[in-house]
Nucleic acid binder design. Sequence first.
DNA 1: TAGTGAGATGAGATCGCTCCCAAGCACAGA
DNA 2: TCTGTGCTTGGGAGCGATCTCATCTCACTA
Lengths: 340, 340
Amino acid sequence: MEQLTIRQIAQLANVSRSTVSRVINNHPSVRPEVRQRVLEVIREQEYVPQAAARSLASRRTNVVTLLIPRSSAVIFTDPFFPLIIQGITETCSERDYSVMLSMVTGLQERDFYQRVLRSRMTDGLLMLSSDIDDPVLPLLINDQMPLVLIGEHPYMQPMYTVDVANRAGAVLAVNHLLQLGHRRIGAITGLLQMKTAIDRRDGYKQSLLQAGVAIEHQLMIEGEFTQEGGYAAMRQLLSLEHRPSAVFVASDTMALGALRAIYEAGLHAPHDISLIGFDDVPGAAYTTPALTTIHQPIQKLGSTAATMLLDHLEGRPPLQQHIRLSPSLVLRQSCGPRVS
Amino acid sequence: MEQLTIRQIAQLANVSRSTVSRVINNHPSVRPEVRQRVLEVIREQEYVPQAAARSLASRRTNVVTLLIPRSSAVIFTDPFFPLIIQGITETCSERDYSVMLSMVTGLQERDFYQRVLRSRMTDGLLMLSSDIDDPVLPLLINDQMPLVLIGEHPYMQPMYTVDVANRAGAVLAVNHLLQLGHRRIGAITGLLQMKTAIDRRDGYKQSLLQAGVAIEHQLMIEGEFTQEGGYAAMRQLLSLEHRPSAVFVASDTMALGALRAIYEAGLHAPHDISLIGFDDVPGAAYTTPALTTIHQPIQKLGSTAATMLLDHLEGRPPLQQHIRLSPSLVLRQSCGPRVS
DNA sequence: TAGTGAGATGAGATCGCTCCCAAGCACAGA
DNA sequence: TCTGTGCTTGGGAGCGATCTCATCTCACTA
């Protein structure tokens, strides 16, 4: 597989390198017949311009990087990630961009920052938001790197953000429980150092307050966004003297753990206790009982983020800088009317 | 963030570009004091060589690509993927490589092939094996691209492969069921166009035959590697006149679906039917009942593959070209002795 | 004391593309 | 017929590194 260069393509097509370059880059000022001829040769020779040379000269790489910060890495097994990645890669590959993956763990943060950004390997970043105090985000914002944050941040202001309306989603969930007659409703929230967790908890509180139900702090348990986290939290709730008749769990993965705790306690959802999740991961339909949950368009989250970034990179700044997608309620079997 | 070039670093350190380049690339022939001085300047200026220029001159990119073929993309939500990715990115980032992600879907196969390979964006490939008839693999092998296939192939011979001993794992699983006294043991296999599925099914057969149990083809159901697939397959098994007392399910994700089918039939595992899975995904401990399964070191699969590829790229060909990792049995609650 | 070779250094040529600028050309209007 | 304008085209100068080769410096040996 010896590679031809643009020079040889030019010779074969009987034009100059410049013209070939113009054809490749879709410059308008090439006579149609000439363009045709050049394209012919390119196809015949299976010529593809060499990325390195191209970036060196043009100062763009056609690469975007998906940054997964340390704190997310822990829960990287969540089905959330593959779906987001799928959304991103699909959009990028359609538009001829490549996707680089960077899991920044531990103390490599600054290193990464150096290696990837200063080496100009990438035109822009998609960052999964996570810990509020993540030290990388300020650096990136400060550096004016083109950046789309997937998830919002309470006070940092990146140029672009995409998120699901987490609070609204939680309201949807808790309202559903209220409608079923529940009044004593627990919440298993994610760690409150994540904006997502905070928003969902706020939605829970908002819904209760609007319904005139007092908030009891002992009914709100904070746990990790993992099965283990949900399991431990649910055990705590179940050990209360007066346990809730329904629980809002801030992620399906946690809900899985919660279901297990319920089962181990010899109880049954939804008969003894109603459970509603958040995310609608692929497995949610296959738990026992099938999980009623809040659907978020995860893949769309990824593709929207990618679209914004690419539009920005290509000089067509997206109209909306901050997009919030709507979640929806998915009814399955884990919630039932309050039995008292 | 104006970027300095190697030239300016050279000036600041009072040496030539060549010397700076030597320092960067760890060439031995630089006087220690000079090296020190140059490193000093580099650190002060936070200089990082520009990737594009570097690759253009050196003909290497320090990028490897993870190729996820179409047929896998469907089940990309499986927790299998994040774990493999984690193993890969960890190893690569330690060794100063970046990871590119390519999900090749539909008819883009040739396109991808062109874009990524001929554009020289990547030094080598990690490919998740999948459909036996995947058309990309032959192309890659033919092109002599440095390639590690994660998973084996029945007749194509890539330079390097890493896999879990799938057959042995299945034997482990079915032997366990046999030991519990089960004789009528069903199998839910993945689609048999995948080597993984074939191997696991063969292990199932091998175990039975060695125990002197006749194989009944009606007890072997082929399904997709998804919850849906497992669900449908288990329904089929349950509808048999004389249903099995235990079932070997070729993946935990499918087992999830199978559990649901059991539940819907008003039955209970392990009391009415024993179930054993394969993979030991993070959720397996949190199903109801917790899933007995075969653990595979998924993350290690990724890191081993990456290590092999990087070693090869760096001119230290790995000793073993084909590595097979050992699975192990994880006892939980979904299997019990045969009651009859 | 001269010869020799190893180690350290620098200069120039490249890598393969893009982009700017100038030149060629045709056609229209004066 | 000449000039101006706009569209095509080609050539040259980078982009920022690496790498080969020649040169220079020493130290060591004969």
